[in-house]
Write a protein that binds this DNA or RNA. Structure first.
Lengths: 266, 266
DNA sequence: GCCCTAGTAG
DNA sequence: CTACTAGGGC
């Protein structure tokens, strides 16, 4: 028996909007510690990891570990039927091949339940090793989204270069090239607006903007995003899910074999 | 000679937006008592009845009964040329085969008139008998529209079940099923937000969501909708047209022959 | 032509 | 946060 009650149901709606474009089908794994998901995107290039800790739910009952395969598009459609202030409860009986989402309006005058068939999905649960990163950038998530969107109008890849002074996002296209430099800046009114760089070593890596722009679908979840970079390691783009956990996106850097063709540094 | 002056011209615009998707061509019937329309939808499944009473017009002159056949799409297009605050006057001369719509801006600085050819339309004016209904539900029209839209993402039909406690809308599709329960609730801030059930007998009927979703195009006309249900009778979905009359949509229930295939009750 | 989505305004 | 509007895609 599984029963998870989340008063701030809009969080779950946002989580699904954040990953449904990247991943079609995935297993949600439920254990006593929390509700999580790990999946490769459909082209097997990026990886998304979601964790919602048990403590973040108003009620969390999970008698035994269970893996529920869902089509994230259908799940997102269903969640769109919930009001933004609704309380969402996820229920599954032991041995059942369905999951039920219950939506309660704040006044309790409207109660909806949506039952969805579960799917069998081959999951390849990768252990993601903890790593030390050469540079970790924390910045306003909306700023990061705008930069990725802007640069994608010029080129296909972005070079992210971090130094003590700041972080530079560069791209180059056929007819134009662009660089956006953000200075480290911690003297802001709201901590959310800060751009903070923790760095042991300067680093410069290249990524496909297409995936970055998928990751930024998670922007509504958090005012800040954390970008962790190391040579030879996938970048981690992380959005906190209020008090509950996170969504992390992993993407391997491009290896620049042919400088003339692919090096966006201007 | 026919001359009808309607200060709140936006009402007529909304009325046409509400029915133009359902009915292509129809006769507007004008008598000393009012301006009305009755027509089957193009697939001959649903019926729409409109009444705008003479008293609702600021000027109402109709020397003799007249039936004016119009293409509702063209009429809606024409009305879209009127400003939302415009005064609309409908004029037709005796024996003429045209109708004229005149739009006056509130300041009288802009006066437009659009003349449209009338059509000959076979009308089959059905007498709609007054009936006693087993259950009448009054609820916020936006809520009804959202429920019909949400359920249509899952299935094709909705079962509406009314008991003293509330009204339940249910559907079932290939991969999911859903129930939305609204509790009777009269203790709300605005009377429009109430859900009120008058019932002599519990009733449960099945309808095609496609038509329900056409009916909800009338939502902008009124904050509330009234749904009248009886076994064996078409449901009536009624939207009041402010102080003037109503739009009523009629739809026959589906007979559930094959329970396994069509019964959406979970 | 219709649906869905994104953006804006209240 | 909801509703409405405008724009783009199917």
């Amino acid at each position: 028996m599984l029963e998870l009650r989340l008063v701030q149901g809009s969080l779950l709606k946002k989580v699904l909007d954040a990953i449904k474009d990247l991943v079609n089908d995935a297993n949600f794994d439920c254990s006593s510690s929390g509700f999580s998901l790990q999946a490769m995107d459909s082209s097997h290039v990026a990886l998304v990891a979601l964790l919602l800790r048990a403590e973040g739910f108003e009620l969390y009952r999970c008698d035994r570990n269970i893996s529920m395969g869902m089509n994230l598009g259908n799940m997102a459609k269903m969640l769109r039927c919930a009001g933004n202030d609704d309380i969402i409860t996820i229920k599954a009986d032991d041995g059942s091949d369905t999951v039920t989402f219950m939506f309660e309006s704040p006044t309790q005058d409207k109660i909806s339940d949506f039952e969805m068939k579960l799917m069998d999905i081959d999951s390849e649960h990768l252990g993601i090793p903890d790593a030390e990163y050469q540079a970790i950038v924390r910045m306003p998530s909306a700023e990061f989204a705008k930069i990725c969107k802007d640069l994608a109008t010029i080129g296909d890849t972005v070079v992210i270069s971090v130094t003590k002074e700041g972080v530079k996002f560069s791209t180059r296209g056929d007819t134009a090239s662009a660089n956006v430099v953000l200075r480290q800046n911690t003297t802001v009114d709201k901590p959310e607006d800060a751009t903070v760089i923790e760095m042991t070593e300067p680093v410069s890596l290249t990524f496909a903007l297409r995936y970055m722009n998928s990751f930024t679908k998670a922007t509504p979840l958090s005012g800040t995003v954390t970008i962790s970079l190391s040579s030879e390691l996938p970048v981690v783009v992380e959005y906190k899910v209020a008090e509950m956990g996170y969504i992390r996106f992993y993407l391997a850097p491009k290896i620049e074999e042919d400088e003339d063709e692919t090096k966006p540094e201007v």
